[in-house]
């Protein structure tokens, strides 16, 4: 068994003066975390991929834990590119996010690009307290420009107060179950994006279901959260749709 095993971890806590402290900011191997300039209330962190991985056999994990009253925003410096590795093993990337009651997390990484020959499984697990706030963006681009994609499997599970409000898997690329590129699933589109918004206010007043673009819509989930799902021909057009959706929905 080859490959790199790395787990990076962030803990964000209210500092008692209206701001957010980061008692833990632990980089690991290729997963480097940098604190950047934030706002008075919000701490900001950028995930810097020192390598272009994950490659086959790699096991990466990133954890963020946001306490009550803390506000954290995490981005990444560049797109993550899944590449084929030396071994036949798949690569795995896990993201584990926990936000306590009254905590707030914006998780806005750059896209994940599935390059030809790669085999990556991404799992994102989100655990939110009843009053937690979350914006989570996931973008997956199948292949670099003009390239056929690798095999990409992803799962996104979000819990609020212990109850699962969203559980979604997507598998695409060579080796995925049949029909993934057909008229029911992607129909030739090469970029898939999702925004998960959790807001305690949605319990009283759910987001309204709405069509945003030809292949994009807002959907209130069965719980105080909403999902924006979009597919587009490429990553740029996908980002445009998601940015518009976020600007419209994320009114604070």
């Amino acid at each position: 068994m080859g490959g790199v095993h790395a787990t990076a971890r962030i803990e964000a806590r209210a500092d008692g003066r209206g701001g957010t402290a980061l008692p833990v900011l632990a980089s690991d191997g290729p997963l480097a975390l940098r604190r950047t300039r934030g706002t008075a209330a919000e701490a900001r962190v950028v995930l810097v991929g020192a390598m272009s991985g994950p490659l086959g056999g790699d096991r990466f994990a990133v954890e963020a834990d946001v306490g009550g009253g803390a506000r954290l925003r995490v981005g990444s410096a560049a797109a993550t590119i899944a590449l084929p590795g030396q071994t036949k093993d798949d690569a795995r990337y896990e993201v584990r996010l926990t936000v306590a009651d009254d905590g707030e997390l914006d998780w806005l990484p750059e896209p994940l690009i599935s390059a030809k020959g790669s085999d990556l499984s991404v799992v994102t697990r989100v655990d939110l307290g009843a009053g937690a706030r979350l914006v989570l963006r996931e973008e997956q681009v199948l292949g670099r420009v003009g390239e056929e994609p690798g095999l990409l499997r992803s799962r996104l599970v979000a819990r609020i107060a212990g109850r699962v409000v969203l559980d979604q898997e997507l598998a695409c690329g060579p080796g995925a179950p049949g029909g993934w590129d057909g008229p029911a699933v992607l129909a030739g589109q090469r970029a898939i994006g999702q925004l998960v918004l959790a807001r305690p206010e949605f319990a009283e007043r759910p987001a309204e279901a709405r069509i945003l673009a030809e292949h994009a819509c807002v959907m209130p989930l069965a719980g105080p959260a909403a999902l924006v799902t979009a597919v587009a021909p490429d990553g740029l057009r996908l980002r445009r749709v998601l940015d518009e959706a976020l600007a419209e929905l994320d009114i604070r």
Binding site: R155, P183, L186, M219
Partner: peptide, 22 residues
């Protein structure tokens, strides 16, 4: 537990259902 159940999704089925409902 229930997490072991598959959750395979089809973006265009979901989006198409919302478009159709409108």
């Amino acid at each position: 537990g229930l997490d072991v159940l598959p959750a395979a999704s089809a973006p265009l089925l979901e989006i198409g259902a919302e478009v159709h409902a409108a």
